[in-house]
Design a protein around this nucleic acid. Structure first.
Lengths: 238, 238
DNA sequence: GACCTTGCGTTACAGTCTGTTACGCAAACC
DNA sequence: GGTTTGCGTAACAGACTGTAACGCAAGGTC
């Protein structure tokens, strides 16, 4: 595999130089740009495998540039911010960044994330799949597919197990539509085995647990049929 | 699995074009018809897995056409209406439509309903991203991504836990390349927690367990670095 | 309305999975 | 050869998840 080409978009010259040196030592080709114009020029000039972009770029807005690039090309982007404030973090996501890291960061962690994003980008299908529905809202609740985080209307985070999260995803993919236990089982196991699962009452238990953790009328029972998510699901409006 | 074939019956050319483009991008084959005659012709010409029909079609009545098609064939139908009035909705159901959606609709909701109807109709739904590298061989071993089955050279099946399977996938995606624990952790959690995981020795344990179950020199230790899969990985010609 | 049947919610429980800790061996370094 | 560092392994504990059992509630029948 040839070397990966990173484009570093950073207006702080010292930081940019340090990062570039570090990344080159780690085996990457590194191009640098300080502003929007430079970034677009670099993108036009050569193949770029991944962009590392500072959120705050003097006059320019990194988030806006990220969205602009995203709209035109399919280049993975990692946003870098000096602020770890949460709203900034969210802003990075909405725009379609593949990952986010806050300064000051652990160089090894940055490296791990770069490699993870590159690896994910290499297997394109899952990437676009995740980006599409990464932030969903339903009845005041939020689900962040990227981090598998569920947030209650009050802002409290609810921790779900792997299977509960998978179940929630099934419901979110089929809002307002009654689902039979067989359908749920098939969707969960991503394969057959629906017959086996439909025999027992594992789905009932799973729904019960999810319902208990969300403790709202989110999931209603359709007696004799199955279960329904009672709310619409929209992509993050905010 | 071949793509699902949708027939779009819609007399508004702009709406039809937009919907068709969207659905094609989502991985469906889309045929279009603007009226009753066109719809029947399309049905006669090729297999159709699902019909998306506007209720109001100029001179023609979508409800009547729906009933007509229903009487002749067993094709799932989703009715689309510009009116969200409930009696209309009921009319759509009575006529034999499988579902109903009101314009303007959320594209994701439409997609979810299409998938739900297709699933209920007994046609295999599910994601295609697993299919890509479904059969991998490495050093005499085989991994079937579709069934998550691992087969030893002798033909014996080895059962791996979810996490062990995920780890194996990471190695298979990076054959002959030494991976640090941080990289492995990042790839496994598909996100951060690389910092947390790198502290403990969970990865060591995981590798140890996988190594024990495969009990071969498949995974070698790179002292001071991490682990490597020692074999090439090839895609099975099926 | 009284009674019965069926379906579901809930609790208890057990098996499995997975990360942490501790200990000992092996490799590298002096 | 002695010491240090890194890793393999066993033991353990906590979490996750499916099964079984019990009881309540919704519908159905009279």
């Amino acid at each position: 595999m040839s070397l990966h080409r990173l484009l570093l978009v950073e207006d702080d010259a010292d930081m940019a130089a340090m990062l570039a040196a570090y990344l080159q030592r780690q085996g990457f080709h590194v191009a640098r740009a300080a502003d929007r114009a430079g970034a677009l020029a670099a993108l036009a000039g050569a193949r770029v495998d991944l962009i590392l972009m500072d959120v705050s770029l003097g006059d320019d807005n990194g988030v806006a540039i990220c969205a602009e690039i995203r709209a035109a090309q399919d280049v993975p982007i990692i946003m870098v911010s000096a602020l770890s404030a949460d709203h900034q973090r969210m802003a990075g996501y909405e725009v379609g960044a593949d990952d986010y890291i806050a300064k000051p960061f652990n160089p090894d962690l940055l490296l791990a994330r770069i490699r993870a994003v590159l690896r994910r980008a290499g297997r394109a299908p899952s990437l676009s799949h995740r980006r599409r529905d990464s932030l969903l809202t339903f009845g005041g609740w939020r689900y962040d597919a990227r981090r598998d985080e569920v947030t209650a209307p009050g802002g409290w985070q609810v921790s779900l197990s792997a299977r509960e999260t998978a179940l929630l995803r099934v419901f979110l993919a089929n809002p307002l539509i009654p689902l039979t236990r067989e359908e749920i089982a098939a969707a969960l196991d991503d394969d057959e085995a629906a017959d086996r699962a439909s025999a027992g009452r594992a789905i009932d238990m799973l729904v019960g647990r999810l319902r208990h953790k969300t403790e709202a009328g989110l999931i209603r029972t359709e007696r004799g049929t199955g279960y329904v998510l009672t709310t619409e699901v929209t992509r993050e409006p905010q």
